[in-house]
Simulated assay, not measured.
Amino acid sequence: MQSITGYHPDVETLPQLLDWLNELDRGWLAVLRSQAWDSDMHTGTTNAAPDQTIASMSQTERTRLRSLLISGTGSLEEWLLRLDAPAGQSYEFILESLGLQQAFDELFTGTLAEMGSLDGSMNVPQGMVGTC
């Protein structure tokens, strides 16, 4: 996600970016659930090939992922400040006018919810105990 911020944001590509980030969220959900990836449906599946072994993530890997998603989402918010906006308009106003604000607000909610971090303990590691 840090690579995204190396580009200048523009309103034409924001919907594509959101689609890709949502697919990434579904991919992380599949990993967290130890599911195979269905490349046609773009989602996790329990129908793995007979010879396919799917390892589960360790607590350390889950903690790192959580940290990457939270810091990456913060970086995206800062990146959106560079969005070309008419004088006096915030990036939130532009996203809302494009119908994209809610989608940006809900980035990685599936993955974070799967890890148990949407219970008000978003930045408190103790809130993750027993949920990962």
Rank of each mutant, 00 (worst) to 15 (best):
T60E: 15
E106S: 11
S67C: 07
P86Y: 03
T73W: 08
G72A: 09
P50C: 01
I94W: 04
R66E: 10
R62F: 01
T53H: 06
G44T: 01
N123P: 00
E61L: 06
S121P: 00
Q59M: 09
D40G: 12
M115C: 04
T109I: 12
T63H: 10
T46N: 11
G72R: 06
S75E: 15
S56P: 01
L80F: 01
T60K: 13
F108W: 14
T46C: 04
S75A: 15
I70P: 00
R62K: 15
S56N: 08
L83Y: 02
G72D: 13
E106C: 05
D51N: 11
T46M: 08
E106F: 02
L80Y: 00
R62G: 12
R64H: 11
A87N: 10
L69W: 06
I54W: 00
M57E: 11
A113Y: 05
N47T: 08
S97T: 12
I70A: 07
P86C: 02
A87Q: 14
L107D: 01
Q52I: 02
A55I: 01
S97Q: 15
F93L: 10
E106K: 08
E96S: 10
Q102A: 14
G44D: 00
F108C: 06
L112S: 02
Y91G: 00
E96G: 04
F104I: 01
L68N: 14
I94L: 15
T60R: 13
E114D: 11
M41Q: 15
A87H: 10
F104D: 03
I94Q: 11
D119P: 01
F93Q: 15
A87L: 12
L76R: 04
L76H: 05
G116D: 09
D40K: 13
D40F: 08
M115D: 02
G116F: 10
G110M: 03
L107T: 04
L68F: 12
G88W: 04
G88R: 05
S121H: 14
S97K: 12
T53E: 09
A49H: 08
Q89V: 09
P86D: 11
T109D: 15
T73H: 12
Q59W: 09
T43M: 13
A113M: 07
L100K: 07
I94G: 05
S90E: 06
M115N: 04
S117C: 11
S58W: 09
G99E: 05
Q52T: 07
I94A: 06
Q102M: 11
R64E: 14
L80W: 00
Q59I: 13
L118R: 14
E78W: 02
